[in-house]
């Protein structure tokens, strides 16, 4: 009896220990961002050969110096502004194109639409690294090199397919009866969409807004290809590429920027991840 209890304790212990190991592996770089962002330089820049100086903790009191430098002495806020501006436009384009398309695929187009839907979903698999070279051609034909409009034009190529797919799944989950009843009552299909479906779809549209925006914040390849001047960069490009003095990174401010940018995105993303995953796997498993 005691033996069995012991083995249960050991099992539970092993379980929580392995959960801890996974968590530590996942979180460690964020902890590192945090430490670096708030350490004083004399605590930060101690060579790792000095084994008596423990890098895992604050050896000197933490400082806000790097954060102040980030906001006051670097273009970080400009980059945030650029990102919000581009993100808002991309979100607007995405909603206008993807929401009606999602409804159409869910309700109006039948088997033909089903195939179209799979086609649209598969375009999500075509990566930026295959398209950035032809895009650089297209962008220069339009004269949009180094312009935020290049990104506004290109980003919907991945937000629209994915969000169309998400909205399609969302509209399918709304009971058909509601719409049918409204049509029996004499509404046209279009007014059903506007007066019955649209209000019910608000939470789905909110998901699309969040996803389109976080995808824009995470994008790096197209921004690297099209944007060259520091003042026009987005956060995910400017922070890794332009927070340098000559050849030396401002590591403290850089990690502060990484932390301040990543954590809010990660939190929001986490809240919506279940929808995202069910969209992806429904795409792959049910077609």
């Amino acid at each position: 009896m005691r033996l069995r209890r012991l083995s249960r304790v050991v099992k539970q212990g092993a379980l929580y220990l392995s959960a801890l190991a996974f968590t530590v592996f996942a979180v460690f770089p964020f902890y590192w961002m945090f430490l670096t962002a708030f350490k004083q330089n004399r605590d930060l820049y101690v060579g790792a050969t000095d084994l008596r100086h423990i890098p895992w903790i604050f050896n000197d009191p933490p400082t806000l110096e790097h954060v102040k430098l980030l906001f006051g002495g670097t273009p970080y806020l400009t980059w945030v502004g650029n990102t919000v501006y581009i993100g808002a436009l991309v979100v607007l384009i995405t909603v206008v194109f993807a929401v009606p398309a999602g409804y159409s695929l869910a309700r109006l187009t039948g088997a033909w639409g089903e195939r179209m839907g799979i086609g649209i979903f598969l375009t999500y698999l075509i990566p930026p690294t295959l398209l950035f070279i032809p895009f650089s051609r297209v962008i220069s034909v339009f004269g949009l090199q180094n312009s935020p409009w290049a990104l506004v034009l290109v980003y919907p190529t991945f937000t629209i397919p994915f969000c169309t797919w998400l909205m399609m799944g969302f509209f399918r989950s709304i009971p058909k009866d509601l719409e049918e009843q409204a049509m029996i009552d004499g509404y046209s299909r279009l007014s059903v969409i506007l007066k019955v479906v649209f209000p019910l779809a608000i939470s789905g549209i909110l998901t699309v807004v969040i996803f389109a925006f976080t995808l824009v914040m995470q994008e790096f390849v197209y921004a690297l290809t099209f944007i060259s001047s520091v003042g026009r960069m987005t956060v995910s490009l400017g922070v890794p590429v332009a927070l340098v003095r000559g050849d030396v990174f401002y590591w403290g401010s850089l990690m502060a920027a990484c932390l301040i940018t990543s954590v809010p995105i990660a939190v929001v993303y986490n809240l919506f991840i279940d929808r995202f995953i069910s969209g992806l796997t429904a795409g792959a498993l049910k077609g």
Binding site: F30, Q218, F220, S236, P240, M255, A257, S262, I265, A266
Partner: peptide, 13 residues
């Protein structure tokens, strides 16, 4: 968290 954070910033860390 690692999947949600922007890849370029995580790479810098």
């Amino acid at each position: 968290l690692p999947w949600a954070a922007p890849v370029s910033l995580a790479a810098m860390a």
